[in-house]
Simulated scan of single mutants.
Amino acid sequence: MSEDTTVFTAVGRRKTASARVRITAGEGKFTVNGRDLEEYCYTELLAKKAALPLVVAEKQGQFDIVVKVMGGGPVGQAGAISLGLARALQKSDPELRPALKKAGLMTRDPRMKERKKSGQPGARKRFQFSKR
C-alpha cells in the first residue's frame, strides 16, 4: 500500500455480529475475512444486502473493500457489513449521507436477543403452572 492512499475505516454491528470495514480507492475488490464477497455471503440476497451502500452511493468499482467480521450468523453479518460500509462511505464523502440515510443504511438496528430471566426457563417462557 502506498503512502498517499487514504484509508477510511468504520465499524458496523447488528445483533451479535461486528464488522470492521476498510475502504481505499481502487478497482472494486470486495473481500470478507480473506474471501471474495460472493463466496463468503453464499446467497445472492446476502451479498446484495452487504453491498447495498455501494449501489445507493453509485460507487461500485471505485473502492477496494476489506472487511473483518465476527460473531452472529450470516444475516447479522451481512447487516453489520452493510452498516460499516455505509459509515465508511460517509467518511470518504460527507455528501453521500442524505442518500444513505434515506435508504435506511445509516441506522443501527437496535434489536437484540432478550436475556433469560431468573425463575423462568427462557426470556419469555414460564414454567408450567400446576393447579394441583
Rank of each mutant, 00 (worst) to 15 (best):
A51F: 01
A51I: 02
P53E: 04
N33V: 08
L54A: 04
L54M: 12
G26R: 06
K48S: 07
L52E: 13
K29R: 13
V56M: 14
K48A: 08
C41S: 09
A47S: 10
G28P: 01
K49V: 13
G26Q: 04
A17H: 00
A47V: 06
N33F: 03
A50M: 11
V56T: 12
R20D: 03
A57M: 09
K59Y: 04
L46A: 15
L45Y: 13
E58G: 10
N33R: 02
K29D: 07
K29N: 07
P53M: 06
S18Q: 07
G26A: 05
E58C: 12
R35W: 04
R35F: 12
V21Q: 00
K49P: 03
L52N: 11
V32Q: 00
E38Q: 09
K49E: 11
Y40M: 04
T24E: 04
A50V: 05
A17G: 01
G26L: 02
A57I: 06
A51T: 02
A25W: 02
L37R: 12
V55W: 08
K59L: 12
K48N: 14
V55E: 07
R35Q: 11
L46H: 08
C41Y: 09
V55M: 13
L45V: 10
A17K: 01
R35C: 06
N33W: 02
V32W: 00
R20L: 03
Y40F: 08
C41E: 12
L54V: 09
C41D: 05
T31Q: 14
A47C: 09
L54K: 00
S18G: 10
I23D: 00
T24L: 04
E38N: 10
E38W: 07
E44L: 14
D36T: 08
C41N: 10
F30Y: 15
L52C: 15
K49M: 14
E44T: 11
V55Q: 08
D36P: 02
N33H: 06
F30C: 04
T43M: 06
L37M: 09
D36R: 09
C41Q: 12
E58L: 11
I23Y: 03
A47F: 08
A50R: 02
K29P: 00
R20F: 01
E27L: 13
Y40H: 04
E58A: 11
N33C: 11
V21H: 00
N33E: 08
A25S: 10
R20H: 10
S18I: 08
V21I: 15
A51Q: 04
L52T: 13
E39S: 10
V21T: 03
G34E: 12
K59P: 11
G28C: 04
S18K: 13
T43P: 01
E58S: 06
I23W: 01
L37E: 15
I23M: 09
K48F: 07
D36E: 13
L54R: 00
G34S: 06
L52M: 15
Y42Q: 05
